[in-house]
Design a protein around this nucleic acid. Structure first.
Lengths: 208, 208
DNA sequence: GATGGTATAATCAAACTTGACTAGTCAGGC
DNA sequence: GCCTGACTAGTCAAGTTTGATTATACCATC
């Protein structure tokens, strides 16, 4: 996830100092990325070293001095390359929330269900907030398009959790599931290492 | 994204050595997480230090010795806490692919379209691969449920890109868009810092 | 004119992540 | 009997990320 594209893309529009960049990302691009301030400064430094960005110190009023970042021609070229690459290749996304669900069977079905209810509330709130975000430049504002993408994902999340909830609703235990410890089953059946299988087979034949 | 839950959850089912853990994650949980080997070992070490996991060295055949990890009662408790928390709270997901689209206007519409076509091919291939994954334990195998979740997201991605493509199809330039540089517009209109606004107002009034 | 709160601007140490590497084992071909 | 390639098992240095902190400026109000 190359976040240089974000910084270069913004500096391309307008030279900025670090605070300004971070402030803009926090306020407007909050839902696209989780780039934190120190990381942004780190990446800016790297961009400077690579010659993609130039920095100049500036004094405004009697404020402490600050660094203003400008994109260079090489930076512009780098941005174009990164952008083409970003548009043309699919990058996997991972969902931290799904990690827990893999181990759902460790808790009683009803407890899973009540926990998921809480998550649902938060997702709904999130969707509502995203839908309220102002449109700056008509319906084809790219930021707005990305926003719609995100909302669509969240709606899938809601539907998915709801269907899961229905499955859990009339269930007190996991007893009727084919395997109680699914992962366990996998491990024991299909996922012993080649080496261990062979070792086992050998010891088995020897004992015969 | 607390990946301890993953390691504890697996060790809970069966004690394992590091290679076994990593191998299982690589083969079966590949689509849920991108946990890499050295990170897994790092986290295992930390879990040991915190007393959630115990390690013992073991010798199998005349293989080099290896460390076997067992979950402790404290580890089990930690796992339960993490799991409850994971199920009950919504964790934001971010899409690296959306980062580029924010800057779509930097490239000609037709170029954006052809780039996105390539991404579409990759997403379709990814969906096909995920759909082929074997079902181990009936339709309610949690891993399978998570898989479905992921596929649903990918299908949303496809639809979304397609609708974007249709918008791009009959367009040679961005000229008819309300603003050429959307971000720029945002920056200049609404996103100057409080301090800068005040500074500007002050200098303006002084000059009067 | 002291005080507390927010905004501005950035840095640092500590934690986390990863690509590249080490080092031994085993099976099969020649 | 030796070589190659794949498997087993893990480590390390270098790179990345972040929570906490520093430090000054401005403003309200007491």
């Amino acid at each position: 996830m190359d976040r240089r594209i974000l910084l270069l893309g913004l500096l391309r529009m307008q030279e900025m100092h670090g605070y300004q960049l971070n402030d803009f990302i926090d306020r407007r691009l909050d839902f696209v990325t989780d780039l934190k301030k120190p990381t942004a400064y780190y990446i800016l430094d790297k961009l400077c070293k690579d010659g993609y960005v130039r920095e100049a110190t500036e004094q405004a009023g009697n404020r402490p001095e600050r660094k203003v970042y400008y994109i260079t021609p090489e930076g512009e070229e780098c941005f174009q390359t990164l952008l083409r690459q970003n548009l043309a290749t699919f990058e996997q996304a991972y969902y931290a929330d799904d990690l827990g669900l893999v181990f759902m069977h460790s808790l009683a079905p009803q407890e899973v269900r009540t926990a998921l209810e809480k998550k649902v509330v938060q997702i709904k709130r999130e969707i509502a907030q995203l839908e309220e975000l102002p449109a700056h430049n008509g319906p084809n504002d790219p930021v707005r398009l990305v926003l719609k993408h995100k909302i669509a994902h969240l709606q899938v999340d809601l539907e998915w959790i709801n269907s899961l909830s229905r499955m859990l609703a009339d269930r007190e235990t996991w007893d009727d599931e084919p395997t109680n410890g699914t992962i366990d089953e996998c491990l024991q059946v299909g996922d012993i290492s080649n080496y261990q299988v062979k070792e086992f087979v050998q010891s088995y034949t020897r004992n015969k």
